[in-house]
Design a binder for these strands. Sequence first.
DNA 1: CGCTAGATTGACTGGTCAGTCAGCCGAACG
DNA 2: CGTTCGGCTGACTGACCAGTCAATCTAGCG
Lengths: 207, 207
Amino acid sequence: MANGRATEKRRAILDAAIRVFARQGFHAARVSDIAREAGVAYGLVYHYFDSKEQMLNELFSERWSLLLDAIRQADAELDSPRDKLEAAAGFIIESYRHDPELMKVIIVEVTRAANTFGRTHLPEIRQAYDQIAKIVGDAQEAGEFRDDVSADFAAMLFYGAIEQLLTGWIFEVVPESDEDYERAKGLVVETICGGLEPRAAAEQLAG
Amino acid sequence: MANGRATEKRRAILDAAIRVFARQGFHAARVSDIAREAGVAYGLVYHYFDSKEQMLNELFSERWSLLLDAIRQADAELDSPRDKLEAAAGFIIESYRHDPELMKVIIVEVTRAANTFGRTHLPEIRQAYDQIAKIVGDAQEAGEFRDDVSADFAAMLFYGAIEQLLTGWIFEVVPESDEDYERAKGLVVETICGGLEPRAAAEQLAG
DNA sequence: CGCTAGATTGACTGGTCAGTCAGCCGAACG
DNA sequence: CGTTCGGCTGACTGACCAGTCAATCTAGCG
């Protein structure tokens, strides 16, 4: 089927773009590099995409919507805020484990590049951020988290911490083991929540 | 004095570069923009600097060494790990308050751009990072911080959290007040330390 | 088999800019 | 007043590369 073939080629180009963007960075990536990597003529790239930038946008949005869904689902299906946050952190870390090149591109070229593409995607990025804030806010109302740290602020720290963690993996070239990933999921949440949760026992006893 | 004049011009170019990099980002910044902003002929830029990149490198290193000194000094002169971390966070936040454009350039173009210039400056960036880890590590040995979270890991979260905070200020265009800055200093540390400090009272009473 | 439409090709163009360079200006000095 | 030298000028060059386009190919259809 011609249509199927065409779709395959389109995908091949997009996948090649991930590899090239991850290897060279968006700016240093030439469209000709992507074409070569995909084993395709230069012009074909422009048959399927309007511009180099559009490829990056598509890669980002495709993946980011999955993240938004995952957080939304975690918020709906889980009870404790800790579990929710762990699910969110877990999804991001799993995304990296599953496709480090794509996550590298997303973080380095979009999420952490807020003056170029991040600008365009700021609304999407904000959504993830707001969802975390909502989880924290709900927990505060329920008395499960202390409320002297604003939910937005807490979300920011949570998000920044995870991003820094991935950035470390991406650039310090630490060869991460499966245990590292698993441990990290728990530790991020444990470290952050330790500061967010009221120290019930101590305060109740003290007060 | 001719020499003094020359030095002045050099500084003017560097300052113009800060403004232009902050406004347009390093990649979109043309050397001609910097020259115009500095009120200087195009060629003069190359009289004082070898390349556009060198200007960015110099801006970064100049400021970053101050940060390293500040953390080192805080570690040496203060006692509690909490105070040390608060001094570190405070210095970064004050740097932003004092010269937001320069900090924007440093964070956006270097610190968070680890595939381009961050690569070059990774050793310097790592030093800051390692100093935080040392503070945490010492606190763990002294029993002031829990030791089931590795010092490197904690440093990463601490650092990522602050960077995200500044990034938020930089891009969300939240008009920050002086109180915001002051509050943020305390809250970052309070939030992170809450998770790092052993809940002494509770555990002692429980155990 | 001839025809059409979409897939595929890659040479070419136009615009952009970092960095160069040949020479001008003005202050200090003899 | 002439000379020198560093500061200073801005037009120019060479390289690079995103995006275009006219031409070729191929699959399927009547």
